[in-house]
Design a binder for these strands. Sequence first.
DNA 1: TCTGGGGTCCTAGGACCC
DNA 2: TCTGGGGTCCTAGGACCC
Length: 414
Amino acid sequence: MDAFYASVELLRYPQLKGLPVVIGGGRRREDDLLDRLKVAHPECEWRAENLAEIPLDFFPRLAGYTGRGVITTATYAARQFGVGSAMGLMKAAKLCPEAILLPVDFDQYRHYSRVFKETITEIAPLMEDRGIDEVYIDFTHVPGGQREGGKVLARLIQKCIFDVTGLTCSIGVAPNKLLAKMASELNKPKGISVVHESDLQTLIWPLACRKINGVGPKADAKLKAHGIALIGQLAASEPQWLQQHFGKVYGAWLHEAAWGRDDRPISTESEPVSISRETTFERDLHAVRDREELGKIFTRLCQQVAADLKRKAYEGKTIGIKLRYDNFQSVTRDQTVQIYTQDAATIRQVAGQCLKRVDLSRRLRLLGVRVGSLVKQGTAPAIPKSYSSPTSSPPTLHETRPDGHTQLLFPDDE
DNA sequence: TCTGGGGTCCTAGGACCC
DNA sequence: TCTGGGGTCCTAGGACCC
């Protein structure tokens, strides 16, 4: 198999070229900017396309940022200061206070993501979706795909994407997905890299183990502790030794990966396994002291998950919660019910039961609701014979008190 | 000055059935 | 009275990815 790995780069704003820019933060920040823009420049509708019309000094700087947002992406000029993806914005503000902070515009990303992928499938139909800005392509049978080892096709795809979206992208070309992904990293931004099997020792082995897609911070630290920092050293390690220290499956995979071996096919179809919503609070909340606020958030998360399920036409029967304590420790609880559902009140009721099984005496920073074991709406298997219908009334999102006020069911609902 | 949100996959123990 | 495997489902946690 010949594989491409293509990823799109930061939205391209000509007037911001060469400047340190980070994109990130939460909804609130975006709303702030939107409000300020309405006042300062009523003629500008807030769209990223319209950024060019907005004077540079309008954009907020990172300095003085407060909040729990993180960086989604950053320009190369900003990365010079040591800031990068997933870094907290308050930390980034210390490193590069002058950086321009732009809000995240997910609707727009989704739009460009769709155009990016459509552009590719018109040229090479065998595409695997790897998220909002990345794809794998099997171009083995694409006409002209083998010219100059794939470079011609890669250039064509880059040009088409740029023409349609104004976005640049990096492309790696290699005999399999594992190597194509690593190849795409070699020549960023907007580069094309071709890696052949014979390039393994010269191009891949000098790279850090962390560059392997599947080696994360934990595995990397453990490898380093054993004196293995580079992929070449990993390749030279005994498979048996790796299996002893990293487990049978993962250890064997590590060795294969270091030798550039990967036989996973391009997967063009996939069904979601779960759908979830979660939120980090502006400040840590306490189940008792902030009961009402938490109850509202909890109910809203359930409603959002239900709306997502309906919009995407899925039903699930494993309903769960996730919470994160103030010390960042996370716990999850879930419960599988008999009937597949996409109903907010049902989700709320079962998730409420899950909440009762966790320690709520500690302060919380995050709450999430998840529905798993999904099936496409209307294709749910028949209810198991052992199931007997409930005698209780259907669940409701709120419990109505005798005085007519609505009491939010958190966390002690029935 | 701590660390978003939305996912997938793997592991491991226990229940339960044959 | 003690002792089997296998298979599947459920649950919790964790690593990893975009």
